[in-house]
């Protein structure tokens, strides 16, 4: 074809354009300060009428209008309500065993049926959201903080700091995260704080990679050179100059990791190293009941599994829409 070129040249010039700042009254300029020069680019306009706050509000508006975000939030909100207020509307005590009514199929008395100990599956699904909604967000948050700090240091210093820490991270990441977590929990004994620290640490390593890449690009920009030229220290340059500019990818990474954290908690619980019975937990319940699948007692396994899936999907929907708004 004869039309050579990029084709998709940066679209409309709309957003990059200049706008007059409305009817701003030009202030009286001190003649001693400025040279007597009615330079008309003089500031009476030239600034866009959009304030930073309005940009943020607009981003929020875009987010709230997106259907994926709404769907994701609705599901997540449902589980949060279950976790916080589930104690009030659960039909039965989730730990109460009723050996006279074991393995009962869903019915009006037990909407989701009962398990092999006669516990109400619906109640256990509702309250199973509690632990996972504490552990996963805390772990993801911890991981994001650790990963951001590590990534900033690696990307800012580069050189030997980057290569040594990078190799250590490589060594850890050579093993599946579940296995690392598994090994540490076996050594330290399972508990909620251990779980948070272990998953947070492992995720921090992954997140550091993303942050490091973003920092490497960012530090080449001239404002970082300008900071060096006024004698700023490393900490200031990293956390005050660079960090605010890499927050976008960090937020996206946080939402992605949150989904994975739920996944990991459920997996560890299933393996018996996460949330410990008898506390209701979806992963642990699947482990406790999957043997009965072959006997046809599907409800004991399927409902907790659906709960896990729905929570992960909700986080991913939110993550996707946040990402599309931030990256535009």
């Amino acid at each position: 074809m004869a039309t050579t070129g990029t084709g998709g040249r940066a679209g409309p010039e709309i957003d990059g354009g200049r706008r007059p700042g409305g009817a701003g009254s030009p202030e009286v300029v001190d003649p001693l300060v400025t040279l007597a020069l009615p330079d008309h680019e003089l500031a009476s306009s030239g600034a866009m009428a959009v304030s930073a706050g309005r940009i943020r509000r607009e981003q929020l508006g875009l987010l709230v209008r997106s259907k994926t975000f709404l769907a994701g939030s609705a599901i997540l909100l449902f589980w949060i309500v279950c976790a916080v207020f589930g104690g009030f509307f659960r039909p039965y005590n989730p730990d109460a065993q009723n050996l006279l009514a074991i393995n009962q199929a869903p019915s009006l008395t037990h909407l989701f049926g009962t398990d092999n100990l006669g516990r109400d599956v619906l109640s256990r699904v509702i309250l199973g959201s509690r632990q996972i909604l504490i552990v996963a967000p805390c772990a993801a948050l911890l991981g994001t903080v650790l990963g951001s700090a590590l990534g900033l240091v690696q990307g800012y210093y580069r050189g030997w700091v980057d290569s040594t820490t990078g190799r250590v991270v490589d060594a850890f990441l050579a093993l599946p995260i579940v296995i690392i977590a598994f090994l540490i929990i076996v050594a330290a004994g399972p508990s909620v704080p251990t779980l948070i620290v272990v998953i947070g640490f492992a995720f921090g390593l992954v997140i550091s990679r993303t942050v490091r890449t973003a920092v490497l690009q960012e530090r080449e920009l001239d404002y970082v050179a300008a900071a060096r030229l006024r004698g700023e220290g490393a900490a200031h340059t990293m956390f005050v100059e660079i960090l605010p500019n890499v927050l976008g990818p960090i937020i996206v990474e946080f939402t992605v990791r949150l989904g994975y954290a739920i996944f990991t908690v459920a997996t560890l619980s299933f393996l018996g190293f996460g949330i410990q019975p008898p506390t209701p937990d979806w992963g642990a319940d699947i482990f406790a009941t999957y043997n009965y699948l072959s006997a046809g007692y599907w409800w004991e396994t399927v409902f907790p599994a659906l709960a896990i899936a729905s929570l992960i999907i909700s986080i991913n929907l939110i993550g996707d829409s946040v990402e599309s708004v931030i990256i535009e």
């Binding site: 957003d15 354009g17 200049r18 007059p20 008309h40 680019e41 306009s45």
Partner: peptide, 9 residues
């Protein structure tokens, strides 16, 4: 110079 600014898009 040319005073002022281009009208907004």
């Amino acid at each position: 110079t040319i005073p002022g600014f281009l009208p907004g898009p």
